[in-house]
Each structure stands twice: as C-alpha cells, then as structure tokens.
C-alpha cells in the first residue's frame, strides 16, 4: 500500500495529467457552448426568444471519445512514466532496492496506471453530468452511464498490461508511448475491419458495456468476451512479469 502511495505521488506530481483533464473538460464545455449558441440562434430566428435548450448536454456525451481516445492516451502516458521513464532516468533502482519484491513493484505500478485511468473516466463522467444538470437534464441516465464506465474498467486493464509489456520491450519513454499508440491503433483497426480476427482482439470490447447494458446478450457470449479480455490480461501480464523479473537495472 505504501508502495502504491509512492507511485501515485510520483505520477500526480507531473502537471501534464491535470492539464490533460482540464483540456478534456474544456472540450466538453466548448462543445456544450457551441450547441447552446447554435440552437439558441435557431430559436431566436424562430422568434421563440432565447432559451438554453433543455437536454443539449447529456451524460452520454463523449463516452466513446473518452473510452476510445482520451483515457487510452493518458493511460499510455502514465505507463511510460511509470516504466520507461523510470528505467531511462535510472530512478527505478531506488524503487527496486526497497524492501519489496519486483513482483510487488510491477503490481503496484499496474494499479497506479489503472487509478489514473479511473480518474480520467470519472472526471469526464462528472463533468458531463454537471453539464447535463445545467442544461436541465437532471440525473437522467446518471446511474446507467456510471455503470457503463465501471464495466469498461475491465477492458482498460488489458490496455494497461499491453502498454506495460511494450514498455519493458522498448527503451525510452517517447518511443514506448508511440509504439503503444500505434499498437492500439492497429488493434482497433483489426477489430473494426477484419471480421475474422476481431472477435479475438480485446480492443473490440473496449466499450463492452454496450453489450451488457440495455440488451439481452446470452450469458455464454458475455463469458466468452470476458474470457478474451481476461486471457489477454493474463498473457500480457505474465510476459511483463517475466521480463521485469529478469532485467538488470
């Protein structure tokens, strides 16, 4: 637990993460204002007077963007800070010469990256929910969308382990980040355009809440997808573990 606290202190001491979350919040806000002004002008033209349109912002906004673009990027960045950057700057040696095993260090760093991902998920959720409340939507769907984000934590773990694996293979934080992004894009491409492989690629299920919420998917389908996600984590984490355990620092 103390080791986890240390990793989080190191991670959040970097201002860029706060900046990214602020930028994402700004995007939501600009989008909302844009819609508000646009529909405001229409209603003005229709002589109905200016009104802040009800339901112009919804807690559903940005959920795909957040899960497919924003959070993966921030998480890749966090992993490269937690692994490649520490290895390159040689600060990893002070982490490893503490009374913790390498296995524990790997686990703690993985959890730290996951916490960063959750911070992204839920800060976006809260921002969008506030927008919805401002535009008069109240707490409509708030619980459903929250559940969606919670469910999508599972595919987020696969993304993190993939990135860790790449970080241990590739030297240098910038290159590791780049390769993580490229690998992610390639897998996403496969999951969209290659029907034969897509069921086996975990990026197909990044937004697997869509399957689970509001539709009646048979249990065996859910289980097989969960199997793909969990299997990917298992394989990627094992490879990472073996590499991390056997590297000289």
């Amino acid at each position: 637990m103390i080791a986890l606290k240390n990793e989080l202190i190191k991670l959040f001491s970097k201002k860029k993460y706060i900046v990214f979350i602020v930028i994402a919040a700004a995007v939501v806000l600009i989008r909302f204002l844009g819609t508000a002004i646009f529909s405001g002008m229409i209603s003005w033209a229709a002589n109905n007077g200016f009104s802040l349109g009800k339901g112009m912002a919804s807690v559903y906004d940005m959920i795909s963007f957040n899960i497919r673009v924003f959070t993966p990027f921030v998480v890749f960045l966090a992993v490269s800070d937690l692994f490649s950057a520490e290895i390159q700057e040689d600060t990893i040696k002070s982490v490893l010469s503490q009374p913790v095993t390498r296995g524990q260090v790997l686990a703690v760093k993985t959890v730290a990256a996951l916490i960063m991902g959750c911070v992204c998920y839920f800060s976006m959720y809260i921002i969008c929910l506030i927008m919805q409340i401002i535009s008069g939507g109240g707490f409509n769907n708030a619980a459903t969308v929250l559940l969606a984000y919670v469910l999508d934590i599972i595919p987020l773990i696969t993304l993190i382990t993939m990135s860790i694996c790449l970080n241990l293979l590739i030297k240098g934080p910038a290159l590791s980040l780049l390769v993580s992004v490229i690998a992610y894009l390639a897998l996403t491409y496969l999951s969209y355009y290659n029907g034969t492989v897509s069921p086996f690629v975990f990026t197909s299920y990044l937004e697997w809440h869509k399957l689970l919420i509001g539709s009646t998917v048979p249990v065996n389908v859910i289980l097989s997808r969960l199997g793909i996600l969990a299997g990917s984590v298992l394989i990627l984490y094992s490879i990472s573990y073996i590499m991390f355990e056997n590297t000289d620092f």
Binding site: N6, I9, K10, S13, S94, P99
Partner: peptide, 16 residues
Amino acid sequence: YKKLSAIDNLMLTARM
C-alpha cells in the same frame, strides 16, 4: 525525481 522537493524525494524511501 526532479519534480519532487527534497523532502518528498526522501519521504519516498522513508515511507517504505
């Protein structure tokens, strides 16, 4: 860690 103060750096080890 460059971004941390001297005491924060030291606390990383101290805490452990």
